[in-house]
Amino acid sequence: MLSDSESAELLETFFLKPETRPDVKGHATEYILGLSANRDGCRFLRSKPDMVVATVSLMSDPSFAIAKDCYHAVINLSADPTLHELLVKRCDILPLLFRNLVDPNFQLSDKICTILSNLSRHKNTCRSVLKLLEEEATMGLPKLVEIFCTKDFNKMASLHYLGPLLSNLTQLPEARHFLLDRDRCVIQRLLPYTQYETSTVRRGGVVGSLRNCCFDHTHHEWLLSDAVDILPFLLLPLAGPEELTDEENEGLPVDLQYLSEDKKREPDPDIRKMILETLLLLTATKAGRQLLQNKKVYPIMREFHRWEKEPRIGAVCEKLIQVLIGDEPEEGMENLMEVKIPDDVAEKLKEADCREEEEMKKEEEEMRKEKEERRTEEEEEERRKEEEKISVTDG
């Protein structure tokens, strides 16, 4: 029996070559795909970079089945951050991905989006992705946004994972500057996707991008102005069917007034949390706080807090409410993002956050156990009813 190293050598030398017989290549790529599906296999492939290079080269194989297996394998490999540098630098995978992404007839574009999303999670490789994106003649951030916003750009792919890719890219100031360019109207094109019901992935990617952009407090007034009007797009996913007073309704943005009885809130907890964090960022400046107060954001948050069951999300909502109904900071401390916190105070706040997080984890664990117990009781009750039906039938 061949050792792992001998098997790898055979794969690299003979089976993963473009000129190898298709049936042999097919078996080899299936083997690579199997290896890539678990941590030990990825670790082994990391020690055999030539095998990874060969796999990437076969992503362009004439056989669709072989190319598809290689794309699947690279999705698995790109989920491991320790392989990012190998894929980006030695395999030089990015130009191939970008060239195929702009092809509206390429059948594996969804796989490309997932790989790019994985590779851009961490800042180091995210910089490489953005750099190559801008250098590629057919691509660039404008083209990426155009593809993302064009319905049925590729009829064989949903391209939803371009959302997380955009969110990852906005970790970097260069990408944020592009989205916040007041002459391009990029943010305005993305806002409707905060309520895109078809895909949680796409919706979450856009909300993540908006949150990252809101770390640049100098743009807050513009984002909240009529030129962008970001507030309704953040509040609508958190608003429910609860009846508000006429006074509360009239102060709200028009799109949030007198909502229907069947109004549903954002179902994904991570997206709800990101929206709350975005709103919290917009309260960092005095102008932002005043606008959110004048637009009656508090009643929406009040009802949301009553509805929300996730402790970690409820905690963020409470912080936002405290800012909305609390006193204004003293003079010179109006911009919360520019306030310098003494080291000892920062350490105490960090400890308090850790304690709060531990308490929330305990609450979530208790809630999970209660749900499991209720589910078990319901299953037992169903089983008992079924047994009774059977006994009656037999009788």
Results as ranks from 00 to 15, higher is better:
residue 379 E to M: 13
residue 20 T to E: 15
residue 361 K to C: 08
residue 172 L to N: 03
residue 140 G to K: 05
residue 156 M to Y: 04
residue 90 R to I: 08
residue 325 I to P: 05
residue 48 K to H: 14
residue 236 L to V: 04
residue 149 C to L: 02
residue 81 P to D: 07
residue 333 M to G: 02
residue 392 V to I: 11
residue 58 L to P: 11
residue 79 A to I: 01
residue 151 K to L: 04
residue 203 R to P: 05
residue 365 E to F: 07
residue 17 K to H: 07
residue 32 I to T: 00
residue 131 K to V: 03
residue 27 H to P: 00
residue 225 S to P: 06
residue 91 C to E: 03
residue 382 E to Q: 09
residue 347 E to C: 06
residue 176 R to K: 15
residue 50 D to C: 02
residue 62 P to Q: 05
residue 34 G to T: 11
residue 59 M to F: 03
residue 209 S to H: 08
residue 223 L to S: 14
residue 275 I to F: 01
residue 302 R to N: 11
residue 71 Y to G: 06
residue 227 A to N: 14
residue 131 K to P: 00
residue 176 R to N: 07
residue 1 M to V: 13
residue 324 L to W: 00
residue 192 P to L: 06
residue 37 A to P: 03
residue 393 T to R: 15
residue 79 A to W: 08
residue 102 V to S: 10
residue 389 K to L: 12
residue 97 L to P: 07
residue 44 F to K: 11
residue 190 L to V: 03
residue 41 G to C: 00
residue 131 K to D: 09
residue 111 K to V: 02
residue 39 R to S: 15
residue 200 T to Y: 04
residue 19 E to G: 02
residue 314 G to V: 09
residue 354 C to F: 12
residue 249 N to D: 14
residue 169 L to K: 03
residue 92 D to S: 15
residue 78 S to Q: 08
residue 310 E to S: 14
residue 327 D to P: 03
residue 283 T to F: 08
residue 67 A to Q: 01
residue 364 E to M: 15
residue 22 P to R: 10
residue 175 A to T: 07
residue 14 F to E: 14
residue 353 D to E: 13
